[in-house]
Design a protein around this nucleic acid. Structure first.
Lengths: 205, 205
DNA sequence: GTCCGATATATCAAGCCGATATGTTGGGCC
DNA sequence: GGCCCAACATATCGGCTTGATATATCGGAC
């Protein structure tokens, strides 16, 4: 779900659409190629719903600053002379609202956990408390176990003698087991570090 | 692409929509959950284009026959008194046409190879000649290598200190490497068994 | 005899993707 | 200076997928 991605990224810093896509690509990598054709409508939707607001818009909100610099900059806090809508270098910088933060929490808690959605949620785990994280991890593991069992059933079904289909299913089984083991490690890390990672609550926000 | 899936399944046996979905689920497992909302329109589309035809329709085209039997039957060549549209047990059995077979070959050769599309193509590899198979495998490997490199670049980029994002990327890297190795084995099997080909059924490995 | 779940097809509102349009800006180049 | 190209930035459109919903038949349980 693209709204989750947008809110998750915007929670960290105010950005305009183009930058948002780049950040998304950086954070989620190949797991989520959000296209402009869905990004801009989604931003408009979220704005209509009050989950995000246009923080600034106008011609030179910020000097180009070729993204090597710290993009965290909530620096430029004041802006003079904003163009109404259409102007040269007309870009809209969006920021998340309290309603948007609530929506983000809600979306994170949602049970959906296909490959892409789960990846997104994981990328934004730092904004969940530990119980929520564990709930999501457990649910993901359950989904993967279901998948594993379904594939296994299909493999053992007779008439599956095509070597390619068999290879596909065996690989799927293997990959799914890897994923399950990985989730297991994440769960262990989450439950087992009572004293190892005092940072999670206090330090690093 | 759903058309690929439909044609690939119909090439083996004539089926109606509902059965088709079940076969698809069996062959591709969790890799492709085709919904009715896309299946029926796709069938209509393919019929308009002449890639498939209604082989038979009517009340009891075939007795339940729990799909273990050979469904290849182009038997029932004549049908009397077909209900116009809405009838009891009105089902439409589709068959692939020569044009449809050509379209299938074309779709198989298409360069697109995301996870799902590649899975489908692999499931239908038996209908390709070896050069085509190798071409598809090599292309898939190239795609995965690209993905690997992109993820690696993202990981090594500074400011990626979030442990969850890091875990996500590391796991993605690992999975992708597994996939690459797997494709490598498929390629080896494809090129290396000039004389061993007979055994694919018997002594696999 | 009647209800239930599986069989079977179809449609609809939302929303996503890829392509495309339109315009701006900075930098390389001679 | 003057030119063009690549990157920046937003937006829209058609085609398609998804998930929900509607309709109707059939076999079997009780």
């Amino acid at each position: 779900m693209i709204e989750l991605a947008i809110l998750g990224i915007l929670k960290e810093s105010n950005l305009h659409g183009y930058e948002l896509k780049k950040h998304l690509r950086k954070v989620l990598g190949p797991l989520s190629n959000v296209s402009f054709g869905s990004l801009y409508p989604a931003l408009a939707r979220l704005e209509r719903e009050g989950a995000v607001t246009i923080v600034e818009s106008g011609q030179d909100a910020a000097p180009p600053m070729p993204m090597t610099g710290s993009l965290t900059g909530e620096a430029a806090a004041f802006r003079s002379r904003r163009r109404p809508t259409r102007g040269p270098r007309n870009r809209k910088v969006y920021g998340i609202t309290p309603a948007g933060e609530a929506r983000l929490v809600e979306l994170m808690a949602d049970p959906a956990d296909d490959e892409r959605t789960f990846g997104m949620k994981l990328a934004f785990f730092r904004w969940c408390d530990r119980p929520t994280r564990l709930r999501l991890l457990e649910r993901r593991r359950a989904s993967l176990l279901d998948r594993l069992e379904e594939t296994r059933r299909a493999v053992s079904a007779r008439d599956q003698d095509d070597p390619y289909v068999r290879a596909l299913m065996e690989h799927d089984t293997e990959s799914t087991m890897n994923d399950i083991a990985w989730i297991g490690r994440l769960i262990a890390r989450e439950t087992g570090d009572e004293g190892l990672d005092k940072e999670t609550t206090g330090g690093h926000r």
